[in-house]
Amino acid sequence: MGFTHRKITPLWPQSNAECERFMRSIGKSIRAAHTQHKNWKQEMFTFLRNYRATKHATTDVSPAKLLFGRNIKTKLPTITPTYQDNEIRETDKRKKDKMKNYADTRRNAEPSDLKIGDTVLVRQDKQNKLSTPYNSKPYKIVERNGTMLTAKRDDGHMITEILHFISKLKYHRQL
């Protein structure tokens, strides 16, 4: 059906921010229902129906309209403007580019120059005060897919990480 699995790094929440933010909204809805002594499942379904019927800030169209081609009936008042599919895609792309540029500017992001064949070090968890931020055993990049890099060590160990957890090794000597 055209689905491709993309692994997401658990220590890098920006890659999963949209899902995390939506889970926060659902949790808030459930807590409100519990506080008001209502059936939380019914209130969650009501929240989801209203969310799907509300126009999205990025596309200017509700998710239900994009999926079904029409508005779903809710108690929310609606106005039905006419949109073309290519208009929605252009608006979505323009707004997402604007958000990306803003985030990149705030983070002082720079394009990565890592390529297949480069020798790199991979970040490791801090075990104690003496542990280094990067594993001392170097890897060679064997595959790059966007921000995901697959690297292989001389002993055959392979690892797939995002760019943020990998640092290019400038000087490397064989022992």
Rank of each mutant, 00 (worst) to 15 (best):
T4A: 11
R6Q: 07
T9L: 06
T9K: 01
P10W: 00
L11V: 04
W12L: 04
Q14G: 10
N16S: 05
E20K: 09
R21V: 13
R24C: 02
S25A: 09
S29L: 05
R31L: 14
A32T: 08
A32G: 01
H37R: 15
N39Q: 09
W40H: 10
W40M: 12
K41S: 11
Q42A: 15
M44G: 06
M44C: 09
F45V: 04
L48D: 09
L48S: 06
N50G: 08
Y51S: 05
Y51A: 03
R52I: 04
A53W: 05
H56V: 13
T59F: 10
D60R: 15
D60N: 15
L66V: 06
F68A: 14
R70S: 08
R70P: 01
K73E: 05
K73R: 14
P77M: 03
T78L: 11
T80C: 10
T82V: 09
Y83D: 06
Q84M: 08
N86E: 05
T91H: 01
D92H: 14
K93M: 10
K93W: 11
R94G: 00
R94D: 04
K98T: 12
K100E: 12
Y102A: 03
A103P: 01
D104L: 10
D104A: 14
N108T: 02
N108G: 09
A109W: 07
A109T: 15
P111Y: 03
P111S: 07
G117W: 12
G117C: 05
G117F: 08
V120D: 12
V120A: 07
L121W: 07
Q124N: 00
K126R: 14
Q127M: 14
Q127Y: 14
N128P: 02
L130P: 00
T132E: 11
Y134S: 04
V142C: 08
R144E: 03
R144D: 03
N145A: 11
G146R: 01
T147D: 07
T147R: 13
M148L: 15
M148K: 14
M148G: 02
M148H: 07
L149R: 03
L149V: 13
T150R: 12
K152S: 08
D154I: 04
D155V: 03
E161D: 00
E161S: 11
L163C: 10
H164S: 02
H164R: 14
F165T: 00
K168Q: 10
L169Q: 12
K170T: 12
R173L: 05
R173N: 08
R173Q: 13
L175P: 15
L175T: 10
L175V: 06
